[in-house]
Write a protein that binds this DNA or RNA. Structure first.
Lengths: 224, 224
DNA sequence: CAGACTTTGTGAGTCTGTGCACAAGGTCGA
DNA sequence: TCGACCTTGTGCACAGACTCACAAAGTCTG
């Protein structure tokens, strides 16, 4: 079972990347339970996917299983962590010290795996110095220095929508390579920066779509 | 341009459903700017997708555009809202009055479009009565009465991971049809209930994956 | 040491989603 | 009324993701 160098293999499909964190979490749990070996079947159950998918996903990382036995839980955990870059340290800056920004900063198990909040910023002078999760809120104007000085690689946008693009531009200009956007607005970034977005309103509207269908099934008269 | 009854047409692909909220938001903006007619090209730009996709997506709703002209912004907005069920009222209950639960309850533009937080619950007796977004925190034990009495259709799980499954079970038992899960755990629900999940750790790990690749491109020696 | 048994890794087929390119259909000016 | 022009709606080809089914490769028992 030789470790293959990162990146030096066939491209890992996006859908697979999105599932690796699930496997990672599942393996952490089996680890706590002291289980040494785990089959794709079991792992599938723990991650809420099907077994064939698990095997194919893991095969992109290399042949880390043993036929007839399963996967060595600890070794596989290590491999996935390595692949996801969790053995590295990723300093995170949160922009926006409102309700959401504070909640995110206080999120436990955040710093846990390599992610460490090193700054919380806000443009509102009244928020300056406010203590959030053990950090003093700093001025948005100092973003550049903070990003460079503390080697921030991931920026989290937790501002109102209208400020989001400006914040994103500033993050990119400062050299941040990854952005997680919680603001409900379209934010454009250069192709070499990755951005993911989390939007409460969108999620609720999707739920509402399906909820409506189900409601109509029960009483088809309500065609509104 | 006749309105077709909801549900009574070819099935709308999941990917399209996930984009309707984007179009909805874009149309709200054009509305504020007083723009009466919008082309697929323009809408694509505002929503951050490509024009062909916009046209195909909208075509699933019916033929609501005019060739040579574009779409009537207000009418289209109305149609999308109808399709997403935004003309209805969806009472929402938030379970978990911690940092995240409070942040979600205070989220502006939440109640805006049909979604209305009608209860915030917590199992911790010390949280009882605490005022969050104008609501007193109520006991988790009262979930059933609250859901039934206030006709809650959407439940939001904002508890620590270990409580999530129990909360989900209780929500389902009480009759909630849609769940939005913020807890970082696998939660199983019956097929007739829809659930979407938002997981900060997963998002960060995905970003970290791609960030790592970029870092390796810059200095290929660091194979760790 | 052989054969039964278990579980991985993957080829092949199917389904879903994307994007191009263009005919169909409508507007507008002369 | 006619023709130039514009934009929608969609057929088609392609790419990505999912699932099945099974050969390959290992373990374990007698």
């Amino acid at each position: 079972m030789a470790e293959r160098p990162i990146g030096d293999r066939r491209r890992i499909p996006e859908a697979t990347v999105a599932r690796l964190p699930l496997y990672y979490r599942a393996l952490l749990e089996t680890g706590e339970m002291g289980i040494a070996t785990v089959s794709s079947e079991r792992l599938a159950e723990l991650a809420g996917v099907n077994a064939a998918k698990v095997r194919k996903d893991l095969s992109y990382l290399g042949s880390y299983g043993t036929r007839g036995v399963g996967y060595d839980a600890e070794y596989l955990l290590h491999q996935i962590a390595r692949e996801l870059g969790l053995s590295q340290d990723w300093p995170v800056a949160i922009v926006g010290a409102g309700n959401l920004g504070q909640a995110l900063a206080n999120y436990r198990g955040f710093g846990a795996r390599g992610f460490r909040v090193v700054a919380v910023l806000d443009a509102d002078p009244r928020k300056l110095g406010l203590e959030v999760a053990g950090l003093a809120v700093e001025a948005f104007a100092d973003l550049d220095d903070i990003v460079v000085g503390r080697k921030v690689t991931i920026g989290i946008i937790a501002t109102p929508g209208h400020a989001a693009q400006e914040v994103a531009d500033a993050l990119v200009a400062a050299g941040v390579g990854s952005i997680l956007n919680f603001a409900p607005t379209l934010v454009a970034v250069p192709a070499e920066v990755s951005m993911r977005k989390v939007d409460l309103a969108t999620e609720l509207q999707i739920l509402s779509f399906y909820q409506l269908r189900r409601a109509l099934l029960d009483q088809p008269r309500a065609a509104r």
